[in-house]
């Protein structure tokens, strides 16, 4: 993926760029809003990482300008502001996702992967991973030739992981996608749901379908 990072703080910027490069992405780093805007408009990127508070041109205006110029490259805002209003303001300005500083690198990486344009598999009626099959029409799950009974939310959780196969889903991403909740729980709520799901789809079998990615979240390998 080609990623443009617009971040004025050198430590944070370098860290993001380094981390993303280690994951195999091509990263361009801009230190200012104006500079970033020019780079974003003159080159093609798969996803943008934009700090909201930039010294010359703030991130909101930057993305608004891009959208006005019909540049629809997905953008993720990084911000020190964490209020509900700020989040909505960011999404209204044309941002596609929002991450509050300080963040863990795993969270950023997972969210960028989710944002990047990928061939959509929306029409698919059957999702699968290994010998696990999910039939979206019959609402049934089988592993091998064994049927697995899932509760509606367990089904939704598994569907969410299967749809984004190969990409890490963080706890907050899962809370957003499955329950439409937008906060950081202080209890291990998502972990508990995952372990219930695992008890049904992984425990009785030899191989593990849902993998834990340390410090980030969960992933189903293709």
């Amino acid at each position: 993926m080609r990623i443009l990072v617009i971040e004025d703080d050198a430590t944070t910027g370098d860290y993001i760029a380094q981390g993303l490069q280690q994951e195999g992405h091509t990263v361009e780093l801009s230190r200012g809003g104006r500079d970033g805007l020019i780079v974003a408009q003159t080159h093609d990127f798969d996803v943008l990482v934009v700090d909201r508070m930039l010294p010359d041109l703030d991130g909101l205006s930057l993305v608004r300008t891009l959208r006005a110029a019909r540049n629809l490259t997905p953008a993720l805002f990084l911000t020190a502001l964490g209020g509900v209003d700020d989040r909505i303001e960011g999404l209204n300005a044309g941002g596609d996702d929002y991450l509050v500083k300080p963040f863990a690198f795993g969270e950023l990486s997972a969210r960028l992967n989710a944002l990047a344009r990928r061939p959509q598999m929306r029409q698919a009626t059957v999702l699968s991973a290994g010998d696990l099959r999910m039939d979206l029409i019959a609402r049934s799950v089988t592993r091998g030739d064994q049927a697995i009974d899932l509760l509606p939310r367990e089904f939704a959780l598994l569907e969410c992981l299967l749809r984004r196969k190969g990409r890490v889903q963080t706890r907050t991403m899962l809370l957003e996608a499955v329950w439409d909740l937008n906060f950081d729980p202080q209890t291990n709520v998502v972990e508990s749901h995952i372990s219930r799901l695992r008890a049904k789809i992984d425990k009785p079998f030899d191989t593990e379908i849902i993998r834990t990615v340390r410090g980030a979240g969960y992933r189903i390998d293709p």
Binding site: T11, T12, Y15, P102
Partner: peptide, 18 residues
């Protein structure tokens, strides 16, 4: 405050992570 304190905290956690 958010900007002036969160940026160094961000740096701190970046450095710790590295």
């Amino acid at each position: 405050i958010a900007h002036d304190l969160k940026t160094p905290i961000q740096r701190l956690s970046v450095l710790l992570e590295q």
